[in-house]
Design a binder for these strands. Sequence first.
DNA 1: CGGCCTGTTGATTAGAATCAACCAAAGTGG
DNA 2: CCACTTTGGTTGATTCTAATCAACAGGCCG
Lengths: 253, 253
Amino acid sequence: MNGAPVLDLATLRSGCSHCSLQQLCLPAGISPDELQRLDEIVRRRRPIERGERLYRAGDPLAAVFVARDGAFKTVSISEEGEEQVIGFHLPGELIGLDALGAGSHRCEAIALTEANVCEVPFEQLAVVAAQLPSLQQQLLRVIGQSVGRDQDHLGILVRRQAGERIALFLHGLSERYRNIGQPATQFKLPMSREDIARYLGLALETVSRGFTRLQEDGVIDVVGRRIDILKPAELNRLAHSAEHDEPKRRGRA
Amino acid sequence: MNGAPVLDLATLRSGCSHCSLQQLCLPAGISPDELQRLDEIVRRRRPIERGERLYRAGDPLAAVFVARDGAFKTVSISEEGEEQVIGFHLPGELIGLDALGAGSHRCEAIALTEANVCEVPFEQLAVVAAQLPSLQQQLLRVIGQSVGRDQDHLGILVRRQAGERIALFLHGLSERYRNIGQPATQFKLPMSREDIARYLGLALETVSRGFTRLQEDGVIDVVGRRIDILKPAELNRLAHSAEHDEPKRRGRA
DNA sequence: CGGCCTGTTGATTAGAATCAACCAAAGTGG
DNA sequence: CCACTTTGGTTGATTCTAATCAACAGGCCG
């Protein structure tokens, strides 16, 4: 658990063109010389600690962020002070779009782990995007992907069975890890059971039980936040075609 | 079947500059001469009938749409053929952003009523937006508002009590009608109970019961799809601070 | 060591899904 | 024009899932 990783200065210094996330992030599909324009406005921020906020609800839209590593959650606080989790953000995924509509943030973005982020001042991004059609295109695509993730989230929440939601959650997370080139069947959850519960609209006990149930069924192996997906196909099945299949029969024959 | 309403040619012909939704739609904040550039690429389509689709899942992103009147729903079809309602779209709200991420539509957009829509070819919109900073800005804002509505939807779905979800739904719809300058306390729901149920992640019977309950409590008056919000403040309270207040005591005192 | 946070597990209960009638309005066709 | 069907909505009875309340276990920290 030497959690605070050795600070890779080279990584911090080097720009988008050397970033491993290049093909997933704003620079995707942008020519090298154009990339430099983008690179000039991107600020590589110092490491963020766990629990630190990138912005708070109500803050004016100043910049959007992308994690190079680590993970974030965005939460909105209801009038009663309840925290509801709007989304989780893995490396390469844009953070801060919740302010696009009104010009100020609806959510807070909180680091779930130590992380390094790139900060892109929004005004400048807009200006450069207007000048570089391929950047504009990629910006819209990245925004669209974010919309897509929100819709996936909606798709999880309308499922009424807790087990389905949990399977869908794990499946989706696994896919996202695969996308960024990390192991898709073995990973450490960056978020707590409570975060997951507030993301899925369930009680945290229900999430816990859901995990144990999946473990009992041999689909996954869980130890605290360590997840090992033993039967990806089965998880996929549970996530999609529901549990209608084996309704009563627990012990398999 | 004079279903096709009297065709208002003047309305169809007149461009954005004469549109009553101008300040809510893409043209907002755009100077008259710039507006003409936008106007040139907007196609005013013939009236759409109820049940007609603007696009289907899988269709490549060709255009985005805005209703001038009427209402739409966007739905995604699960592998089991279940229809899940992603969103409802009132006049002035952009339809079709679900394709921004992958370049093809994830959803289908279906007319809930007869409607007139403007169609904006996406490629051309991107080109013009790159040339007109104020249009680019407004495009991003409108996209952001759409993201905001999705997040409101999420906020509804994580609420676990059916009554809260229903109150929140009515409250949000009311706000949106107010925004477009239509009566906010009296309106006709363009969607069926089943659509609402699939939007809220509830069974349709539960939605029906929820409406009846609100009526019994004197908060609203419902007759089929006609809604009259009698106590907006009370609805607002139910939507936000939940029903934790009067748990058992039905008859007050 | 003792406290604290995170997660698991158990018992009970509230609330919504489901199954099933039923009703009114709107078509449809003889 | 009236019987018949279809569609959308309401209401009732029953069942079952997940929330809630509660106790407890392991890891980590001061």
